[in-house]
Write a protein that binds this DNA or RNA. Structure first.
Lengths: 230, 230
DNA sequence: ATCTCAAATCTTGCATATTGTATCCTCGCC
DNA sequence: GGCGAGGATACAATATGCAAGATTTGAGAT
């Protein structure tokens, strides 16, 4: 690998381990490190300009986050997901994010509602043709505001654990302009439910929103032929 | 600490890190390592008969599991829970275990139903006076069977992350014979719902079961005076 | 007697060395 | 010519060593 890890921005993090963890996580999530790729400690250490120890620690953390699989004595690889797994994951995500939306609806501040509306506006203006990553990020931002408004550190952690999945498995979604429109709609509806504090409705919409994303994703993956694991 | 870590049974685990992890986790969960206690790498390493490296890795894993807190350059401590935190945790547990019960009801095998019934029988025979730990473990076993029957690795992982809380915070529950009777009842009802495959009912009962546990626990903690964090 | 500042000590964080194990390759044997 | 044993190799797992940072303790001053 040709030093795809080191990006422009300076390493803000205090400890080398955390730095390594962030860099590797980012690389996995946005696809620079492809699922299934072998992660050799020494190689990563060399690229990151540190010794193997902090790399080991980073891999350990990523493993417990579920982004990395590690076979004893054989090293670590970027986790691959089977279709079943994705199904499972998205159902959990629907459950948890639905709950988050319900909680958020009765706690959210006016400021956060405004933030949601701004996000919707930005979302409207984005074109899939422009940059897929922007869409993904805006979507993430929207969901994050709700998650924060739910005001439960534990819930936040759990959801993160469930939604942090390599981009490969997500970007399919946004290729379709109709899907983007539908998401736009759901985001607007969610924002409305939040504004008026309708918790039940918020939960319902969020669940459906996530489950539709799952359906679409699974459809894409299946039609992209029978190879379940990517 | 006077070697409270090394228990009788031989270390089955292959790697030293995993072994350390299991031993320390067990010690935390069943209270031999009290919440708030400082965990010094060298001390643990000495007691476990290994070097600091695997201990470090174990602590890292336990940290991501939420059982230990670690301040950079200041070391790790056994995590303490505030009352708010417990509330939060139990609500999530209700959500997740409720979902698990729902899934399990429509998938569970006859063998697992039998296992649930046996667990109920054993539970009936236990007296709080005997050994609190037995009660806690039997309860854990019951919930685990359902969790397994839900047949979702991810869900299992999430629940584990949420229910693995030092025993200190749980044992209160069983001090009261009435609470034990009520739990017994819910376990029986859950088993019945599982047997007939009533998913909605199973979810409902499980949620109520967990939420009542929360209520009782919070009541106990609050009446045990205002010291929220133990 | 108490407060403050500094040195000594303790502890973590990272690096490097060593060991152990699994895989692969090669050479000899069948 | 194919197959298996033994060695070479690559890599992870653990140990050890060293430096930087935090905490504590003690001496001096107020």
């Amino acid at each position: 690998m040709g030093n795809i890890l080191v990006e422009g921005h300076a390493p803000i993090s205090r400890s080398a381990s955390e730095g390594a963890c962030e860099v590797i996580r980012a690389a996995i999530v946005d696809g620079r490190l492809a699922p299934g790729l072998r992660l050799k400690e020494e190689e990563l250490a060399r690229e990151l300009g540190m010794s193997r120890t902090p790399v080991r620690e980073a891999l350990l953390i990523l493993q417990s986050e579920g982004l990395v699989e590690s076979i004893p004595r054989r090293g670590a690889t970027v986790r691959t997901y089977a279709v079943d797994d994705l199904d499972d994951t998205y159902q959990l995500r629907a459950l948890l994010e639905g709950y988050a939306a319900r909680r958020a609806a009765s706690r959210i501040s006016a400021g956060d509602v405004a933030r949601l509306e701004e996000s919707c506006d930005r979302f409207d203006r984005l074109r899939p043709a422009d940059d897929l990553l922007d869409l993904v990020k805006e979507n993430l931002f929207f969901h994050n505001v709700i998650l924060d408004a739910a005001d439960s550190v534990r819930l936040h952690g759990l959801v993160r654990k469930v939604i942090e999945i390599p981009l490969v498995y997500k970007s399919f979604y946004w290729y379709s302009p109709e899907q983007k429109l539908i998401s736009q709609h759901y985001h607007r509806q969610l924002t409305r439910a939040m504004r008026v504090g309708d918790a039940e409705r918020a939960e319902l919409i969020m669940k459906e929103h996530v489950l539709e994303a799952r359906d679409f994703l699974l459809m894409q993956l299946q039609s992209a032929d029978g190879r379940g694991a990517a």
